[in-house]
Amino acid sequence: MSLQYCADPSLLHGWQWLSCYLLTPKHQLFYTSFLVVFALLAITAPVVLLLGFAGAMAKRSSFLPLRWFGSIYTSMVRGVPDVIFFLFVPIALDQLVEYARHKIKCPDITAPVYQGSDFIVCAAAKMPTSNADAWVHQLWGFSLAVIAFSIVFGAFAANTIHGALQAVPHNQLETARAYGMSDSQVFRRVHLPQMWTYALPGLSNLWMILVKATPLLFLLGVEDIVYWARELGGAKTSYFEYPHPDWRLWYFLALLVFYLLLTWLSGKFFARLTDKFSVDKSRSKANSIKPTLIGIGR
C-alpha cells in the first residue's frame, strides 16, 4: 500500500512527504506490531485467570504437598522483581527445551552441551531449527514471552483469588451447608459467585498492570511497538529514503496516548463488570469500589 506520488521521496514536501513517510513498509511493520500487544493480552489474560484459579485452589487444598506448591509458587514469583523473571524465564526455558530435544534427537553426540561459555546442541535440536522462517523464530520468542507473563501474573492472580475466596463471609457458607448443600454445591452456588465481587477490584488492577507491562516484550527481543517506535524515531541520515532528525519524542508520545486510551477504556469496562457482579445493586452503586460493603440478603 503506497500512494502514487511517493515514487521519489526526495522530491516531496510538507504533508505529501509526511503521508508517504507514514506509509513506508517500515511504518506498516510498526502498525502491525500493535497487534502483537493485543495478541499478548488476549492470550495471557485467560491463561493468567486459569493459573490464578489453579494456584488459589492449590493453596486451599487439603493435600499438604499441593498446598506447599501453591504457596511456594505465589511467594516465589511475588518475591522476585518482574524484570529479572522476564529475563530469566525465556532463556532458561529455551535452553531447557533445546537440551531435552538434544538428548532425544541426537543421542549419539556425547560432547557436553556446555563448552566453556558456548551452549551447543545439535542442529536438529535447535528450537526453532535454523532453516525455519523468520516468523517462526518471532513466534517462538513471543511464546516464551507469553509463558513468562503468564507465570508472573498467574501468581498475582492466585493471591487475589485466594484472598477473595477467604473474604466471602463464613456464616453464608455455613448457612448454605445448613440448607443441605454438599461441599461442591456450596462452592459452586455460593462461594464462587460471591468471590467475584471481592476479586474484581484486584483483578482489574492486575489487568492494568498487565497492560502497562506489555512493553517488557521489547526487553525480550520481541519486535513490539516500543521497538519500532525507537527504531523509527531515531535520527535518520541520507542513507535512508526519508531522512529526519531525532523524532523519538513524537513516537513515544504516540505510545503514551495509546496506553492511556487502552487503560481508560479498560477502566470503563471494569466499572461495568463490577456493577454487574455485585448482587446488591442499590448498595453497589453507592459504594462500587468498596466490595466489603456488598452483602447478600442480610
Binding site: 517500515k26 506498516q28 526519508y242
Partner: peptide, 18 residues
C-alpha cells in the same frame, strides 16, 4: 543465521522497506 544490529549505517541498518 547472520546476526547484525541494524542501526549502524553505512555498515548495517534497517531501510525504509523494513
Amino acid at each position: 543465521r547472520l546476526g547484525t544490529e541494524g542501526a549502524y549505517p553505512p555498515y548495517n541498518f534497517v531501510n525504509d522497506k523494513g
